[in-house]
Amino acid sequence: MQAAREIRRQDTHVVIVFITAAPQYAISGYEVQALSYLLKPVPWFAFSQELKRSIAALQRRSADSVLVEAGSNRLRLTFSEIVYAESIRHTIVIHTLGDTISMSGTLKELETQWRGHNFFRSNSCYLVNLRHVNAVEGQECVMSTGERLRISRPRKKAFLSALVNSLGADPQ
């Protein structure tokens, strides 16, 4: 359980399945959001079904999140918590609902990696999560955090079009 707590502390999206002979600990699995709990001896069919279920859960989660390298740390972020990414002097700063994360790279690389997840390049400095745009006022978009980000004139029409299209998309 201690190892599961530490794993969960590091990454909230890891799939955890307990395999044990002690049924009294099954309740503890809820504490770390374990996907399931298998009792030994585990028949091959039950194990293979659980493995398929775990892989499916992982695939669903990975489609809604991204792994970023910030220095020596690797962090998993859900796309829904990313408000925008900003380029500052060859450094990318990812602004989430609760934190900022600095990493090396380019907005162009992020734009390619995050394609299909409702992000749009509003100007040369910002890659905006359209799900967090609350309003467009003049040449700025107002984000869910209250921040105002510049929209370049040449990109404004495409930005507004992408914003309208994102409103009709399935929520993440």
Rank of each mutant, 00 (worst) to 15 (best):
A85S: 13
R76M: 03
R115M: 05
T20D: 02
A22M: 10
A22V: 09
A22T: 03
K157N: 08
I94T: 13
N129D: 02
A135Y: 01
N134R: 13
R155P: 01
Q33D: 13
Y25W: 11
V14S: 10
G138T: 11
V32Q: 00
T100I: 09
I151K: 06
G146L: 07
R8P: 02
A169H: 00
D99I: 05
F120S: 00
M1E: 10
K156A: 08
V164I: 09
E6H: 11
A63Q: 15
A57G: 06
Q2R: 15
S80Y: 05
D64K: 11
V42F: 08
G168M: 01
L163M: 09
T91D: 13
A158V: 06
F120Y: 12
S80N: 12
E140K: 14
S72E: 10
L58G: 01
L39D: 09
D170I: 00
I101V: 15
E69R: 12
N73D: 14
K157M: 06
V93D: 03
A34C: 09
N134M: 10
I88Y: 09
Q2S: 15
V164K: 10
R153S: 11
G146V: 06
H132D: 09
V133H: 04
A135S: 11
D11F: 02
N123I: 03
R89D: 11
Q172M: 13
M1F: 07
A46H: 05
L149E: 01
K156Y: 03
L77I: 07
S54L: 00
W114H: 04
G168F: 00
Q113A: 14
G71I: 02
I101C: 09
I27S: 03
